[in-house]
Write a protein that binds this DNA or RNA. Structure first.
Lengths: 345, 345
DNA sequence: CTGAAAGCGCTAACAA
DNA sequence: TTGTTAGCGCTTTCAG
């Protein structure tokens, strides 16, 4: 029986207290299962609060306890399959621990990233997770002054950051390119992504190392590092166009990520050429799309969901004052149809 | 110069007030740009608050004003390209108006959907947007009692709901299937998705209407409505497998959405058959993936980003007490390579 | 133009 | 086992 108020009127513990003939702290304790409250009173209060449609205010609680049980999650954009899976992982363990997620996007803009983190700080989130941060270690003083724990996923700033989870980009690229070399390719290109400086540098480094290890001479013209093209697919198309145009065209191309590889794949087809018959292609991430295109992409798996989970777990540890160290996930080769031996191998 | 406190200590307006030699309401007013505060005092206070690293507490403000400037966004899962774009749209206009987004997932489970909305209510969000709701009109009494404005995007409950934005599913399916008939197909299948009851029903209805309009007899065996398969791609594969197995196999198939069509596409290829030579395929949504597979999918465009924006705009109107009416977006045919005339057309 | 006082809804310390 | 009192940080009357 909901006798209390009309639209918008909220029932508070004081209202319940009045109805139950007790003080409001008693209601508060009963509802939170404080063992000091007698079983009968507790039950009576619980019943009453149900009948009256009570909904505790997380806002008031947050003000009082100085913990909101909310965390901020900053991503470049949500409309990226890689990011979406990471968010999924974060959300999963957040919910598991009773935390809510406040989502914000940085659009890969460092200024906006900072603004957004400030906003989350105003909301008094208990901590923040930033994916593909451009600020990195800049958070360390920040953290000290405002006491807001921050965890990074695949930090893209030059600077190293203490609390972060990431993939081993160097190794991942090394594995991918070594695979291409192993099946016989000697002319291997790389289409990079300067918009993610750190991963891009590392993947390029792994690429070089793999070439060196395979005894292959690097060639500047096989390196496509186009700045200013934000879209992965488009960068892949344009990159591949460049590579197909040069005289001694590579027989295999390692792409910064799967979306880039998909763009490259479509460009190869547009030229009337075939993958892997004319060009072998390898990507990075192993997003779902990688296995859905034709041919399916050979790629390096990045455990996105697990990385999201791990970041949230790390943040929770930080909140509990426990010790925390960086986590680097191992990359794994997923061989599929987009790679074969070169035609004249 | 940050002389104030160490880790975790927060500067409040009282601290600033003390430092400035004014009362704390004056600080509050100055910082919010209240015109009654003299220019000099205001500036002095602003400078001081910067120096002292002041970050206003949205929690305290929310408690006092009873508005949090946060909205809840409930989706089935974030790891779905359709959903991600909708979220992007919502986030875009939310930020534009200074609102934060609290993200939660329902995993298509009505019980969980309700639980999650309750949780958002406890957080005192100003309103909630639910995508693919299974509860629909059940929110109407709910709304009345707790006074929480709720807007739905593509409501999936049987019941009609007042405040919602959606696509015209019937018309969309009608357009797609009519297109297939127009190019000469007479045996047209449909692979549905009972997990989204309302859209599924409507698309099936549009499918039937198009057949009728084209003077084609419907055939039960061309209708695949497999319950219990959550994954779109998998449902597409299994559905297509069924359709390819029957004697008089359809020459064209309309799929519930693009992901389903991608599954179907890959299954056709697995059978050594070709799209569109042996089977034409049409999807729904026009997610990015639709144009990236080979051949690119003919599909019905759903303006996901705009729908997200519209939902948020609608919610803002509701919060301002303005009149609001349902918005139904028009579907649009995007013809691509996955459809051609039937072989023996 | 500014200050004093009150209170949003809750929890925590201290009494009884 | 329960009640009293105080206060989290802000905004909002109401006075001056």
């Amino acid at each position: 029986m909901c006798t209390e108020g009309g639209i918008g009127s909220r029932v508070s513990i004081k209202d319940i207290a009045r109805a139950a003939g007790v003080s409001h702290p008693t209601v508060s304790r009963a509802l939170r299962g404080d063992p000091r409250i007698s079983a009968e009173t507790a039950e009576r209060i619980r019943d009453l609060s149900n009948e009256m449609g009570y909904s505790p205010s997380a806002v008031a609680r947050g003000l009082r306890t100085r913990r909101t049980r909310a965390v901020g999650l900053v991503v470049t954009t949500i409309a990226d399959p890689f990011v979406a899976d990471v968010v999924d992982g974060v959300e999963h363990t957040a919910l598991e621990h009773g935390y809510s997620l406040i989502l914000a996007t940085s659009r890969s803009d460092p200024e906006r990233e900072l603004a957004v983190v400030r906003l989350l700080d105003e909301r008094r989130v208990d901590g923040v997770i930033v994916a593909a941060s451009r600020l990195g270690a800049l958070y360390e003083p920040h953290l000290a002054t405002m006491g807001l724990p921050i965890v990074l996923i695949n930090n893209q700033a030059e600077s190293e950051y203490l609390y972060s989870v990431s993939i081993d980009d160097i190794k991942g690229a090394f594995i991918a390119v070594s695979h291409l070399a192993r099946v016989g390719h000697r002319a291997i290109g790389y289409v990079g992504c300067p918009a993610r400086p750190r991963s891009h540098q590392h993947r390029q480094q792994g690429y070089r190392q793999a070439l060196a290890r395979a005894g292959l001479a690097p060639c500047r013209r096989w390196l496509v590092v186009d700045d200013g093209i934000a879209d992965d697919v488009e960068r892949g198309m344009l990159g591949m166009r460049r590579l197909l145009s040069i005289e001694e065209r590579p027989t295999a191309v390692f792409c910064y990520n799967d979306m880039t590889a998909v763009g490259a794949l479509n460009e190869v087809k547009r030229w009337g050429l075939g993958v892997p018959d004319d060009v072998s292609l390898a990507g990075f991430d192993d997003i779902r799309e990688a296995s859905l295109v034709t041919p399916p992409l050979t790629t390096i798996r990045q455990p996105r969901f697990a990385m999201g989970q791990e970041a949230m777990t790390m943040l929770l540890r930080l909140l509990d004052g426990e010790a925390v160290h960086n986590v680097v996930f191992p990359p794994r080769l997923i061989p599929r149809g987009s790679v074969s031996s070169p035609a004249d191998g």
